[in-house]
Amino acid sequence: MNSLIRKMSMVITESLMSQRTICTNIRFPTFLQVSSPLLAEPMKKKKKMDPQIIKAREERKRKRIEKSIKKLEKNTKQLKPIEEIDWPISLQKQKLLRERTETISQPQQGQDILKAWRSYKYQQSLQETKMIDRISSSQLQALEQLRAISEDLYIKAIQMDDLLLPFTAAGPSSTPPIIGYDVLDGEYIDETPKWK
């Protein structure tokens, strides 16, 4: 039995040794595992390049930039094309075929009609107001002359005539309530407090 325990402890210690553990307490060991080291390698050295090659590359970059600047300076007066305004070449060729010979100005024609209609309605309303003013002034003159002749006839002339505009209305007739008829209010429980 003891030999078995010794063998087991040997196996446990060997496995613990492979994990690189640190024990802080003998009775209850707490294992702190350390991660495996990452295999890093030193940074690569920059390759030394020929200074003439570097100079040639920089010269090419400079020439490219100068060329683009010259191109931009040449096209300063030229406006940038807008895709919505440009129209296809096929339609440009058909321009003469599609051109209208008659000029139709519908909005202007509609505005002219509207102006004429407004002036007509204005003149019509002016004539109506003039006619109403003429009738009302002649009516007042007639009433004043009637008053000078007879006061009783003037008072009768001022009164409203009910027969001038006959008006009849037929509506529901009011009926007396039925005797003994109990109106249904719905079911409810009377909970009013009663004092004795």
Rank of each mutant, 00 (worst) to 15 (best):
W87Y: 14
R98V: 05
E83W: 00
L72R: 13
Q78I: 15
L91G: 03
I82Y: 01
T101N: 04
Q78R: 14
S90W: 03
K95E: 04
N75I: 06
I69F: 02
S90E: 14
P88V: 03
N75G: 03
L96E: 11
Q94T: 02
E73M: 07
L97I: 02
T76V: 14
E83T: 03
K77N: 15
K80F: 08
R98S: 07
R100N: 02
L97S: 08
I89W: 01
P88L: 04
L72S: 15
L96N: 08
R100T: 01
P88H: 05
P88Q: 05
I89Y: 02
I69W: 00
Q94I: 01
K74S: 12
K70M: 12
E84G: 08
L97H: 04
D86G: 09
I85D: 13
L91C: 02
P88F: 01
P81F: 00
K80W: 04
L79C: 04
L96D: 10
W87E: 12
E73P: 01
L96F: 05
L91Q: 07
K77Q: 15
K77M: 12
T101C: 03
I85P: 06
Q94F: 01
K70F: 08
L91A: 07
Q78V: 15
Q78A: 15
T76Y: 13
R98L: 14
Q92C: 08
K80V: 09
K80C: 04
L72P: 09
R100E: 04
I69C: 00
I89E: 12
K74N: 09
L72D: 11
L79N: 05
L72G: 15
I89R: 02
N75R: 05
Q92S: 09
K77F: 11
S90N: 12
E73C: 13
R98K: 11
I85R: 11
T101A: 06
W87M: 15
D86P: 01
W87H: 10
D86V: 11
T76D: 12
